[in-house]
Write a protein that binds this DNA or RNA. Structure first.
Lengths: 239, 239
DNA sequence: CGTTTTTTTGAGACAGTTCAAGAATGGTGG
DNA sequence: CCACCATTCTTGAACTGTCTCAAAAAAACG
């Protein structure tokens, strides 16, 4: 099975065989993290970055009253904390939402890549820029969309991101995320998440039973969520 | 007057004289953009990135009902769209909030830097990573803090960012931003922004008359806004 | 100084929250 | 493979933070 990071990057630009080899060999070890365990903790100063090979993970912060905000949801092929290479101190924790298979890429290796492989460096930089673009999109959805639109938007995004790494089966994706976790992502209460999902179901836009999320009406879902995929940079071009 | 970008980066790591020279000479032209004008538009594919030398600017998106969300506020020394170097297509617009002095850095020059100056490349990458860290912090504030706490948080952040590029005079900074713009930043209505500001004033935390924002009680303001500055990466270390 | 923009105030409306409890699911050990 | 326990989902009802609309006061601008 091919490395989902390479799959992800090759969607955005061509990688040379040499670059792919460098990426493959950048991985020192692969570990398993069980659901609900921390992968990295806020305040940590990692000397390696974690690449998600399998499973779902989330970046999160806890605020004073114990409430939690998820600032990113991650699917296979995503780096969970590539930014710790240069930011040094983690400004948030990263949590496994399901059992996760995680590859470690030492920061010394990343430094070497920046010294010797300019194009590959740009591709890794791009990877973090896409994270940023998603953050901006979430900010807009959170600040200016209704709860229902926001949820529709998130579903559109996750569907496309999963599809882009080969994790969609037709209109269906496995999305093992609880409504409480969705609430922490959207900044909503669990109760309201439940009502919003019911609305999307009643409208015939999605089916969501167990972990199986099915898109029933893509066009209308996109419209409800005011979704345009530009920010995901799914275009292949010279970078 | 020294380039505020160099001031900003030197706060995070040492720059060699050579690197500083490269940065200085990366600028092709400087232009003035008047308040309320677009600096870059959503959908643009710029072949240069804009560096803010003077003034205030904002990244924003417009949603269907005409409402606007500001996803970033920029102060001198900030790149407004360094990410367009690799993302290619702008996923948001950038607007001048005041008269702005803007330097253009061609993408071909940035490409050359990534080819030849690894450490400088990492510093530019870092710059975009800090943008991302701010996005995450805003997401948390927006999703899980009260309007008052969110406002206090934003004020703490802007004060520190302005101070970091030498734009604070003691406890005071010039902040020429309207309450409507603050609302678009926080995801609030103008009316509510007004009430929240009154509360912060009544509590003796800030003074805000005209454009002059004064921090009257930093410790208490930080506490109200649940503010910790880690995410701004104000530490000088090897990157 | 008149005009526009921004700030401030009041009052009613509503989207989303909280609390509480019951129903459905899913995983686990015997 | 079933029975049990824990988690997750669902529902109802009261509550509240923030919004909307509208209009006056103040400030900024040319």
């Amino acid at each position: 099975m091919t490395n989902p990071l390479i799959l992800k990057l090759e969607q955005r630009d061509r990688l040379s065989d040499d670059e792919k080899k460098v990426l493959e060999s950048a991985i020192t070890r692969v570990r398993i993290v069980e659901a609900d365990e921390d992968i990295v903790r806020e305040g940590d100063r990692p000397n390696e970055s974690s690449l998600l090979l399998d499973g779902f993970a989330a970046r999160y912060k806890i605020v004073s009253n114990g409430r939690r905000q998820i600032s990113a949801l991650h699917v296979p092929g995503d780096f969970l904390d590539l930014h710790s290479f240069l930011l040094k101190t983690m400004d948030h924790g990263v949590l496994a939402l399901t059992t996760c298979r995680i590859a470690a890429v030492p920061h010394v290796t990343l430094e070497k890549i920046t010294d010797e492989y300019p194009h590959l460096t740009r591709m890794l930089w791009l990877n973090t820029l896409i994270d940023g673009a998603i953050h901006r999109e979430w900010l807009t959805a959170m600040g200016r969309l209704s709860a229902t639109a926001h949820m529709a938007h998130l579903i559109c995004e996750l569907y496309l991101r999963l599809k882009a790494v080969g994790r969609a089966e037709g209109d269906m994706v496995q999305l093992p995320i609880t409504q409480a976790e969705l609430g922490d992502t959207l900044g909503l209460s669990t109760v309201h998440v439940n009502r919003v999902l019911q609305e999307l179901r009643k409208e015939g836009l999605i089916r969501f039973q167990g972990d199986a999320l099915t898109i029933l009406d893509w066009e209308r879902l996109k419209k409800v969520g005011e979704f345009t995929s530009t920010y995901l940079s799914l275009q292949n071009e010279d970078r």
